[in-house]
Write a protein that binds this DNA or RNA. Structure first.
Lengths: 173, 173
DNA sequence: GTTATATATAAGCAATAGCTTAGAAATGAT
DNA sequence: ATCATTTCTAAGCTATTGCTTATATATAAC
């Protein structure tokens, strides 16, 4: 997962995986069948990884809009100049004919959108957001914003990224 | 440019370029020196291409916010399931150590942001937007949104993409 | 302690990567 | 028409690609 994240799918050779994973090519192939399958399992692991390490607090039952705002604004300061999101990078790189990979990518984005939906729903319950808030449209918007943040975190400077995020959060008000 | 746009940088082989460009490898190398340099020139050509064919109307002197809204909403219906933006795809794929390429990518995004700045300025003059509109922050926001649109156009369905864009445009109101 | 099973390594496979050389065909100037 | 220059093609260079085979080593069962 880390090697694909740092280098992208095509630029990651099996020799590099061998070196970074610390095991032989044969072991890689006997465990993962093919480079493509290892990549798919890396995408699955990435999802489990961000669940535990990145979005953990936002996935808790009590989480609301305030938590989401804090999270996004916090990510602006950390994530400028970083690798971006592995799945966004893959969505931009991988050919649409790669059905299995695309399916994994779509599943990930549905997961993120589901998380945003829940946050919006909780926020309405908590009266952080008005009852008429359109959860479907807003979740689409913030998913798109998060995809933008991934690209922007690779290209924008910190303050520019922060402006992008703060105005995105401002939209819902 | 087209081959890199369709396949990405790493997945584009010189054999494929040879075939699609209709000329021999030697001719490619005598004209462009290296695959990397051909890619850089493709990025430059892409910029000229979108200037003439995509953003032409928005770059005209009279263009204001209404034109930008029409453009973005129009792109939602066309661009779902397409290749996305070559430069965004490249920003997601290319390693940050590739200084020359990254510089070209940054230049492109500065160009887009400059266009948005001009649109915001004109919009204020035309009283489409209030005079207190923060051009710097708003241009960062809409650049981030356009980066998101590129990713979203590869992954979202049309109506979802349209929701994203319409709420993004709603932010400024 | 021996045997069976799993997992490691090293070496090597054909195919393709980016790039170059050698030489033919076309071009343009005189 | 000739000669020099440019621009083409075909072939081939070394290195690396994703993947396998043959073989050794560790593990586990009885």
């Amino acid at each position: 997962m880390q090697v694909f994240w740092s280098n992208g799918y095509e630029a990651t050779s099996v020799r590099l995986l061998e070196k970074e994973m610390g095991i032989n090519q044969f072991s890689i192939y006997s465990s993962f069948s093919s480079k493509k399958n290892l990549f798919i399992q890396s995408l699955q692991r990435y999802r489990a990884y961000v669940k535990q390490n990145v979005y953990h607090d936002l996935l808790k039952d009590g989480a609301g809009w305030n938590d989401f705002e804090t999270f996004l604004l916090g990510s602006a300061s950390e994530s400028s100049g970083n690798r971006g999101c592995l799945v966004v990078n893959s969505a931009a790189e991988i050919d649409t004919s790669e059905k299995e990979i695309i399916s994994e990518i779509n599943g990930y984005f549905e997961f993120i959108r589901g998380m945003i939906r829940n946050l919006l729903y909780s926020a309405i319950q908590k009266k952080e957001l008005p009852a008429h808030t359109d959860i479907e449209k807003q979740s689409a918007f913030f998913l798109g914003v998060m995809q933008g943040i991934s690209v922007a975190s690779r290209t924008m400077k910190g303050d520019q990224l922060k402006d992008f995020i703060s105005l995105a959060l401002n939209q819902i008000k």
